[in-house]
Simulated assay, not measured.
Amino acid sequence: MASRKEALAKRASRVRRQIKAVANGRPRLSVHRSSKNIYAQIIDDVAGVTLAAASTLDAGLRSTLKTGADKGAAAAVGKLVAERATAAGVSEVVFDRGAFVYHGRIKALADAAREGGLSF
């Protein structure tokens, strides 16, 4: 039986394979959450560069948040990454939830990114 880490890696690769098939050259909004923080970055897979990134560890956000592990923090990161993406000239992305279920903090980040101006 596969370990938890192997199962998560397998699920993430399956999701990324499906995303890359439908991306049509759009950058990827990749999300990672840990037990204490949440991270989001917009990646151009064609060029292999990160166009914009945000996390609960950013100095501006860290001082305003009570904790980095709740829906409010995820929404703040989603809004911040959307602002940074529009500043970088990105308006359309594909959402890469990785191995995480689209629920809770992941959904809150996605909704806030949409409200911030990203289209996916």
Score class of each variant (00 low, 15 high):
21 A>H: 02
32 H>Y: 15
12 A>Y: 08
87 A>M: 13
104 G>D: 12
56 T>S: 15
51 L>A: 08
21 A>F: 09
38 I>R: 04
97 R>K: 15
94 V>H: 02
76 A>D: 02
100 F>H: 15
79 K>Y: 08
57 L>R: 14
105 R>P: 06
94 V>C: 05
50 T>Y: 11
3 S>Q: 01
82 A>T: 06
61 L>V: 07
77 V>F: 01
26 R>K: 15
112 A>F: 04
55 S>K: 09
76 A>C: 06
29 L>H: 05
21 A>Y: 06
63 S>N: 13
65 L>E: 04
106 I>G: 01
83 E>I: 05
58 D>P: 10
95 F>S: 04
26 R>Q: 11
120 F>H: 10
2 A>Y: 12
59 A>G: 03
10 K>S: 13
99 A>C: 13
9 A>I: 01
117 G>R: 13
111 D>M: 11
66 K>M: 11
10 K>T: 08
3 S>M: 00
54 A>V: 10
1 M>V: 10
34 S>A: 09
65 L>K: 09
78 G>L: 00
105 R>W: 07
4 R>M: 07
21 A>V: 03
62 R>Y: 04
91 S>W: 12
36 K>G: 02
100 F>D: 14
101 V>G: 02
96 D>H: 07
14 R>M: 14
38 I>S: 00
21 A>W: 07
13 S>G: 10
93 V>N: 03
28 R>M: 06
64 T>D: 13
75 A>Q: 03
105 R>S: 08
6 E>G: 06
13 S>I: 05
40 A>N: 04
7 A>L: 12
117 G>D: 10
98 G>L: 02
96 D>P: 05
22 V>W: 05
37 N>C: 13
57 L>M: 15
83 E>M: 02
50 T>W: 10
39 Y>R: 07
107 K>L: 12
57 L>W: 03
43 I>T: 08
65 L>Y: 02
56 T>E: 06
59 A>T: 14
53 A>G: 13
86 T>F: 00
27 P>Y: 08
114 R>S: 09
19 I>C: 03
14 R>N: 14
22 V>K: 15
105 R>A: 12
47 A>Q: 13
53 A>E: 12
119 S>D: 14
7 A>Y: 09
116 G>A: 10
7 A>G: 07
24 N>W: 12
106 I>N: 00
63 S>H: 13
20 K>T: 06
69 A>K: 14
5 K>F: 07
37 N>F: 00
75 A>D: 01
4 R>E: 07
113 A>K: 09
58 D>L: 15
54 A>R: 03
